[in-house]
Design a protein around this nucleic acid. Structure first.
Length: 511
DNA sequence: AAGGGGTCCAACCGCATACCG
DNA sequence: TCGGTATGCGGTTGGACCCCT
């Protein structure tokens, strides 16, 4: 580990306390930066990168040394759902935490959950994520979408709805997380790092569309109001997203302002709007600076113009609530049940009309009444869920399992299954961590390996999808994005037809 | 008690980007 | 504008530790 003792060789390996002391002393005297000069002045035989890393990860003040608390874990989940493997940006949202720390946490969690066949994201995050795209305005630029689940390439508002489809698809993609094990770079925007976005791509805060999901996200966490840390939650709850019991209220104006310059915008999640001249999104290296300006931990900013709100899917759906719990959504549902069964609080789920509660929560919580939202053309404000991506997707998506369960009965039928919880204390399935609403956060999916012929029957979708090494997220999102985008110039009715006729059945294992 | 597997953590590496002359 | 350097970021690796059998 230690470099050879040659003259100018730099030491590697673990740092000693004396080295730490030297480094701290140097930084105290000269400040951060100029790391390469450090060893010249301090005699420390460490390369600048190593010094910087040591300082950033271990020596700088205000670092939290404790384990992640549930709120932080939840924040990481949300941030990852939103940002992808942007550890530094995630760290910027979590004061006192380092990117390395978060990365390690995530990778560990990833492996654990993958091994257990569990989804990486709690469904609320996934579902929020699916709704976050906001085609407020056509995008002029084509900002990268770092999110592995959202690699939108679309520009026009008419196509944006399919971004959501991509996203929805990935929420059901068992590889949505797996792909990030080593393929994060694949799933993430392969083009450039986000900084690149600052070169010419800007987004407008006006693209923030709805406040409801944010509130609901917060609500679903059931955070204890007395929770003092991390500061992000203060930002989240007090400044950015003051909980509003009135679901009809929207405060996106303030929210949007708060998001100016935040990475939440940069990453394109909130984008879909045109450039914002004069706004340089890149901030100095100080991560804390970002945390100040960024309110968007949560992130999952809903999409008022829910991609699927475009579709008059009412006819497809027996009823709004059931649609979500439809067996066609069983990819989520069944795995939810799997995890739910492992929960200590499973009894409450099964014994208290869980299906309806869950459904209600999902409908009311994650898909706030679209009548309160600015729906796109042809949306049906009278059907809060009918136009949701989830419903649209579910109705056209094969199930994970062969179980032809139906609606709430399927829920009940699955409850009795004995499944050992992979992570009984998993942050988002632990009702103890998030209160009684834990049941609402235990949505999970089975982990189903995608078959190589996911889309093989479709000429577009069948491309480049025969191997697992292909990022499933990319595969699916690209396939859907490309394939469906070609059909975007049509009225909503035909869109439904196109969507419905899209070979979902070929997406075996995708949902 | 020993061994194996899993987890956590620290650190390094390579690449991309920013900065500067 | 270009090239060199510094810095930042994400991926990966490897060791220490823990837990289970």
């Amino acid at each position: 580990m230690v470099g050879k003792g040659g003259g100018g060789s730099l030491k590697k390996g673990p740092w000693t306390s004396s080295e730490d002391a030297v480094l701290v002393d140097y930084v105290n005297k000269h400040g951060e930066g100029n790391w390469n000069a450090l060893h010249k002045y301090s005699g420390l035989r460490r390369c600048g990168k190593s010094c910087r890393l040591r300082w950033a990860n271990h020596l700088r003040p205000n670092l939290k040394k404790s384990a992640f608390i549930p709120e932080e874990e939840r924040a990481i989940l949300e941030l990852h759902a939103k940002l992808g493997n942007k550890w530094a940006r995630m760290a910027a949202q979590l004061p006192g935490r380092t990117d390395n720390e978060i990365k390690n946490y995530w990778n560990t969690r990833l492996k654990r959950r993958q091994r257990a066949g569990l989804p990486l994201y709690p469904p609320d995050i996934m579902l929020h994520d699916a709704n976050q795209y906001t085609p407020t305005q056509p995008k002029v630029a084509d900002p990268p979408h770092d999110h592995p689940l959202l690699n939108s390439k679309t520009v026009t508002s008419s196509s944006i709805r399919f971004d959501g489809l991509n996203h929805i698809a990935m929420t059901c993609n068992p590889f949505s997380g797996l792909s990030e094990i080593s393929g994060g770079s694949v799933l993430n925007n392969p083009n450039q790092r986000l900084k690149r976005l600052g070169d010419g791509s800007f987004v407008q805060p006006s693209s923030i569309s709805s406040f409801n999901d944010i509130k609901n996200t917060q609500a679903c966490f059931n955070r204890t109001p007395t929770y003092p840390q991390p500061a992000i939650w203060d930002l989240f709850s007090a400044q950015a997203f003051p909980y509003d019991p009135d679901p009809s209220s929207t405060r996106m104006s303030a929210f949007g302002e708060a998001l100016v310059g935040s990475h939440a915008l940069v990453n394109g999640i909130f984008s879909a709007s045109g450039p914002l001249p004069g706004l340089k999104l890149e901030l100095p290296s100080s991560q804390f600076a970002e945390s100040v300006t960024t309110t968007g931990l949560s992130t999952v900013v809903p999409n008022v113009n829910d991609p699927f709100a475009q579709y008059p899917l009412t006819a497809h759906l027996p009823k709004q609530t059931d649609s979500f719990l439809s067996p066609n959504y069983s990819g989520l549902l069944e795995s939810l049940l799997h995890e739910a069964q492992g929960m200590s609080g499973i009894n409450s789920l099964s014994s208290s009309g869980s299906s309806s509660e869950l459904t209600s929560f999902i409908v009311n919580g994650f898909f706030p009444s679209q009548s309160k939202l600015k729906c796109g053309v042809n949306s049906d404000p009278a059907t809060p869920l009918n136009g949701t991506a989830s419903s649209g997707f579910s109705e056209n998506t094969p199930t994970w399992s062969a179980s032809p369960c139906h609606e709430s009965t399927s829920v009940q039928s699955q409850i009795g299954k004995k499944v050992k919880p992979e992570e009984p204390n998993e942050e988002y399935i632990s009702s103890s961590s998030y209160g009684d609403e834990g049941v609402s956060t235990i949505f999970a999916r089975p982990y189903v390996l995608p078959t190589s012929d996911w889309c093989s029957h479709n000429t577009e979708m069948g491309k480049e999808q025969s191997t697992v090494t292909d990022s499933p997220a990319t595969v699916l999102s690209d396939a859907l994005g490309v394939g469906i985008q070609q059909t975007v110039s049509m009225n909503s009715t035909s869109q439904v037809w196109e969507l419905a006729s899209f070979p979902w059945s070929n997406l075996q294992g995708a949902c």
